[in-house]
Simulated scan of single mutants.
Amino acid sequence: MQPMNKRLLTVLSAFLAVSLLVAGCGTKDDKNGQETAKDGQAKVLPTDSKKVVAEYEGGKVTEGELNTYLNILALFQPQMAAMMESPEAKKEIVKSYIAEQMVSERVNGKKYEKQAEESLKEFEEQLKQMPAEGKDKKKQDLESYLKEHGFTKEQLKDFLEKNNKVSAYFEDKVNEKDLKKQYNKSDDFYKIKLRHILISTQEDPEGKKKKRSDKDAKALAEKVKKELEDGKKFSELAKKYSDDPGSKEQGGEMEGTPDMWVPEFSKAALKTPIKQISDPIKSDYGYHLIQVTKREKQSFDKVKEQMMGEKVTELYQAFVKDEVKVTKLDIPGDKKKK
């Protein structure tokens, strides 16, 4: 259930995911992981504390405000809940919270309040469609549902309004002409279907195969290529020889865009003539053989929103890094308080 601006959620998720990984927080369940309630939602954090956990030029953040923000994030981004509880993670989330406060103060306009109200209505409609939970199987009203998750309707509306402002603020800084220039220069928007065989030089994680030398891997790749050129089926040889678990059982078939693959592989996927078997392609993983079956560049209209989201995320991260100056940081449980 996601009534919020989809792009902004992507921005927040991307920023927080990168920040939390940098902070050394994983997704594994551990002593620092946020507890999960029986219904699958993250444990609701208390929001009544007035203790100041952060100060910045122009404002401060209380523990209650931070926990309200965490409760909202945990509801809409449950896959990140396990990352949100450690002191190091909270430091990064505080910066994101402050960034939203700072940006929203720079943006005027009643339309964002209206957008937040529309999102709330959409959220409420989606809630009505959800199956009833609990022993009495009664459907919950919006106020009760939000209260169970640690925040009020007004707090969610404020969150949505600020998020809409943040999204608009950074989108206004993106020039569509610049996006088109980037699109025209980039090969990342090709959609490519191909067949793939990997002859690995890496350790076998299951220990079933011995590690190959570079020389042996190259020789085997050349042998497999000759078999392909002699008419053997790619799918059969992929299942027999390939060390790529992601495509082996599909007969080597895979699909993607160049930005998904290592540079050597991407270059070959873009340049190898359709249906031709490539020469062995060396990468850190070993030697690859590919046969491109289809390659076409997606239209600008299809990728424009993706490009806009990536650019907005980049601008948002730069803003947090360059302009969010925290003068006090006192995160509960943090041994290195500032």
Rank of each mutant, 00 (worst) to 15 (best):
H149K: 12
D141R: 09
R106I: 08
M130T: 12
L156G: 11
S104V: 02
K139A: 05
D158R: 06
V94Q: 04
P131Y: 06
E143Q: 12
E171G: 02
E117V: 15
K121D: 13
Y169K: 04
N175C: 04
E143I: 01
E118T: 06
G134K: 00
E154P: 02
G150D: 07
V174D: 11
K153D: 01
E100L: 05
H149P: 02
A99Y: 00
S167R: 10
E124N: 13
D141C: 03
E113D: 10
N175Q: 13
S167Q: 15
N163T: 03
E105P: 05
L127F: 01
K121L: 12
K114D: 14
F151M: 06
D158I: 15
E117M: 10
E125M: 01
E125G: 03
Y112R: 11
K111I: 01
A168I: 08
V174C: 10
N163W: 08
D172E: 15
F159G: 01
E148F: 01
E143N: 11
L142T: 02
M130Y: 03
E113A: 13
E105T: 06
E143T: 06
E161D: 13
I98H: 00
E100S: 10
E171S: 07
E100C: 06
E148D: 08
E122K: 15
G109C: 13
D141Q: 07
V94H: 08
L156S: 13
E117K: 11
E122H: 15
L146N: 01
M102S: 13
Q140A: 00
L146G: 00
K135L: 07
Q140G: 00
Y112K: 10
E122Y: 14
G109L: 09
K95G: 06
V166T: 14
Q101H: 14
K157N: 05
E118Q: 14
K114I: 14
V94M: 04
I98Q: 00
F123A: 03
S167F: 09
D158M: 11
S119V: 07
L160R: 10
N164M: 05
K165F: 12
K95P: 09
S144I: 09
N164W: 06
N108E: 15
A168E: 15
D158G: 04
N175G: 05
E122N: 15
G109Q: 13
E113W: 10
S144Q: 11
Q155S: 10
S167M: 13
K165W: 08
D141Y: 03
L142N: 04
Q126N: 11
H149Q: 06
F151Y: 11
